[in-house]
Design a protein around this nucleic acid. Structure first.
Lengths: 239, 239
DNA sequence: TCTTCTTAGATTGCCATACAATCTGTCGCC
DNA sequence: GGCGACAGATTGTATGGCAATCTAAGAAGA
């Protein structure tokens, strides 16, 4: 039933069709992850026929999924040309980080205000897990997943689902330029952990201002690296 | 070509089909506006067949549009039941206003930092236009359009397209509860103008903090009314 | 009469196909 | 070598169909 794969991308088809959820949602998740993990590279064209072969679903479904991805901002749809994976310019990247600062400061401040003690514990636990992974030298993907888990604790504790929606979409787009920021410098994960430790500490002390400042420092550091790497690869004729 | 209309909604079909743009985009705009102007009421079910009859396009197209609306957050899709116009609970409304404060303060601060003098003039002009409309006692829709124009000046001057995207989506959802806030109190538009005048003044003085504070005051006032009206109609058995 | 079961209709989820319009690259002609 | 016509690929849109699910109405039973 899963279509054979003419292009050497063997696994996408196998991951859909078994679970219980609208097919469209499963395909959406698969494609979204494929974009976020750079399996589909920024600027790459997403041809409907190829997606059909990869996933084994019909064109109708693929097109509906592409519309959702477009509305989420992960792909741009060019009329008569189809969907293209979002490719950020350095300026756009700066805009995203600028916005991220604002939203994440608010996130952590709200968390400090509203989170229960058990949520504080959950945050500490999530951070410790992340720390352990980095110490063990775990793979990038695992580290990112741990970071996501930490953010999830924050978002839950802040108790604002609109904020969750907005930040999720923002994070998705930001992570499109992770290629540069995280993998470039092997020391970066450790610094990252150090910065986040300050956030957790300030949070446990219920010091909203300090927690906000610490998180902003973290975002700024990530932004600096991400954007620098970006401008570098832009300047180079890496075409 | 435009299908006749069995339900007494005569104009939707006439507005699509002439211009030059993907049909899907035109339909999207028509449906979005129908939602934002309360022609489709919160909680109302959007049945595919009915939308087909209204717009004259095929089910394929309608479904793609519904996916986009869902991703934008204007409709919720319930599995096996279809699309329902977003109906906010009072708590969700508070969340939206909370987020709106954060984003709009940032918006106006950035505007003060970055806007050119001519953009300052444009802001003043947009405000004056709004003021005039309110003085003349213009219709709600015109007033809202003038307000949108003012926000557009701010967004352009702030020079962050990511912020524009985020705020647009937020405004769309917030405006779903305009029913209460704006039309309830006939004096509200005048107060609104007064609050915004402070924003414009502080902006012209290039005082970011004051402008941010003034805009927050405005958002808070709107929030208070909107949410109060909401809780009232919730408590009443207006079912 | 009230409850529960059954059944028919409506609706969504997904699919296959079709065809016009547009875009792209190529081949042959000038 | 440049230019134009043509073929192939791809998107945009429409149509018809079928299974799964939901809903409401009616029938059967307590």
């Amino acid at each position: 039933m899963t279509a054979e794969n003419p292009e050497g991308l063997p696994s996408l088809a196998d991951r859909i069709g078994r679970v219980a959820a609208p097919l469209r949602v499963q395909v959406l998740e698969v494609l979204r992850e494929a974009i976020l993990t750079m399996r589909f590279k920024p600027g790459q064209r997403l041809v409907e026929r190829e997606l059909i072969e990869m996933t084994g679903v019909s064109r109708t479904t693929i097109r509906e999924v592409l519309r959702e991805l477009a509305a989420e901002g992960l792909v741009r749809t060019i009329p008569q040309k189809g969907a293209v994976v979002l490719a950020l310019s350095p300026d756009e990247a700066e805009e995203l980080y600028d916005l991220r600062e604002v939203l994440e400061r608010h996130l952590v401040e709200r968390f400090v205000e509203r989170a229960s003690d058990s949520q504080l514990v959950a945050l500490r636990r999530a951070f410790t897990h992340l720390e352990d992974l980095v110490d063990e030298g775990a793979g990038t993907l695992d580290v990112l997943r741990a970071k996501d888990a930490m953010y999830d604790v924050l978002l839950t504790g802040a108790g604002n689902s609109a904020l969750r929606t907005a930040l999720s979409q923002l994070h998705a787009r930001v992570s499109l330029l992770r290629a540069g920021s995280l993998s470039a410098d092997p020391q970066r994960p450790r610094e990252s952990v150090r910065e986040l430790r300050e956030v957790v500490k300030a949070t446990e002390a219920r010091d909203a201002a300090a927690a906000g400042a610490a998180l902003i420092a973290h975002v700024r550091a990530a932004a600096r690296l991400g954007i620098a790497a970006m401008r570098a690869s832009e300047a180079a004729p890496a075409r």
